[in-house]
Design a protein around this nucleic acid. Structure first.
Lengths: 242, 242
DNA sequence: TCGAGGCATGAATCGATGATACCGCGGCGA
DNA sequence: TCGCCGCGGTATCATCGATTCATGCCTCGA
């Protein structure tokens, strides 16, 4: 029997990618059901149907596996929600994005605590980067509509920090302490911190923004007279272009 | 020699309380200098001058020791700052309290991550409770002065959550990403969420329009690549100026 | 002053964890 | 068809948190 020895037990056939997926999902399942401590090489290996050392054929170390679990959980959540942005109302889009981030945390407590509880993990993780990317996209549309009150990266940091604080604080409270108003309060605080009460530009698009900036140009102090002069000419061309 | 055998080595004399303190300070020192992973029973015992099992004569398990370390670090920080509240201006007092909480986090990264990074630890910790107590005191004075906009416990949760998000986000960023404006923005967002103070309406200056135009730049066709490049830099300066 | 009990100390040890070295089998390409 | 790369399994290591047990000091009481 040329292939019997491998098929007769749990491991089963399947390519490398499939085994990798099985390991990740086993780890994610353990993390979700029994918490961070339960995710050991032995427990994951047993749940995935292979021996502990085999895990290291797919992941350099435990941290890499956990990063993969984070990415998997994040992608799964996004796929289930398939939240499409609404270009017509960027402000409501901002709220929806914040809600989405918080909902992810509340739906995956152990995973979220692992991703955003340990400060060192954040930067390198792919899931972290992915979350920031879609956040920056929403912020860009907000900026294009003239709603943004602060610089884009600062806005992203504010949004992220409020969501992070909201989720971790919520998770650390007992049931009787949890007040849904905390989440809405933090969200609205974030909105007022990030956006203007009225958009700074009336007409959408580059032309409208150029007209608005040209009108407000005399107040600025960051540019020299020569720079301002040239900028003014360019703004005129952009405004006429629209 | 009735007491010589105990004095001739590192352990030294002193009561039970002193040994306990030495263990806590050794653990706190290890945590601050080498991070969370370095705090093992063996390392702590070696630094404190006793055998690993002796630690369990003072603490039920590792978690209890870490809780004691948290309390010690928190008390030490508070004693060093000896920040006395200013009854005359409860609003500025609120800001000072928030700043204090954040400064504690930035000054003790590993300790803060341990205290507020793992959601499960929060509730039981004595240091956590102590922080909440002085926070509630400040909130009460705020309420007495008629400044409070929301219920006291909700206010405490908002303050705590914003500080928590601020510190953990700050700690997870690399040096070049850290913008002090993040901390002030979050603090002011907290103030407007908690108090009746109206947010200062900033006039729609050039900064907002500059941000809008920057976001819409890729659409425009009136400028060459070189012109657009320079324009982008100028817009960044104007946006940061606001 | 002397004896007895309590308690901290220290050595040895346990179970479990993350990680590694080595071997054998299989599939894929030359 | 042969050889090689790679995957999984067995055996094993170093270290971690935590426990057990015997020893000896320290204190309290007679």
């Amino acid at each position: 029997m040329p292939r019997g020895t491998k098929d007769d037990v749990t491991p089963g056939p399947g390519g490398r990618e499939l085994t990798r997926r099985r390991v990740i999902e086993a780890a994610a399942d353990l993390l979700g059901r029994e918490g961070r401590e339960a995710v050991t090489t032995r427990a994951v290996a047993a749940a995935a149907g292979l021996q502990p050392p085999a895990i290291y054929r797919h992941f350099a170390d435990m941290d890499e596996l956990l990063d993969a679990v984070a990415e998997h959980g994040y992608a799964t959540f996004l796929a289930a929600k398939h939240a499409e942005p609404n270009p017509s109302d960027p402000l409501e889009d901002l709220r929806a994005g914040w809600n989405l981030a918080v909902e992810f945390g509340l739906a995956n407590p152990a995973l979220y605590a692992m991703m955003y509880g340990e400060p060192r993990r954040g930067t390198t993780s792919a899931a972290f980067q992915a979350g920031m990317e879609i956040l920056l996209g929403r912020i860009r549309r907000l900026a294009a509509a003239g709603w943004l009150r602060v610089e884009e990266h600062l806005a992203a940091a504010i949004i992220h920090a409020t969501a992070r604080g909201a989720v971790l604080t919520w998770l650390s409270m007992s049931d009787d302490q949890r007040d849904p108003a905390l989440l809405t309060s933090l969200r609205e605080a974030m909105v007022t911190a990030v956006t203007n009460q009225k958009p700074d530009v009336q007409d959408p698009g580059a032309a409208g923004a150029a007209r608005a900036l040209r009108a407000a140009l005399p107040e600025q102090t960051a540019l020299s007279n020569a720079e301002q002069h040239l900028l003014n000419e360019w703004l005129g061309r952009i405004a006429a272009d629209g």
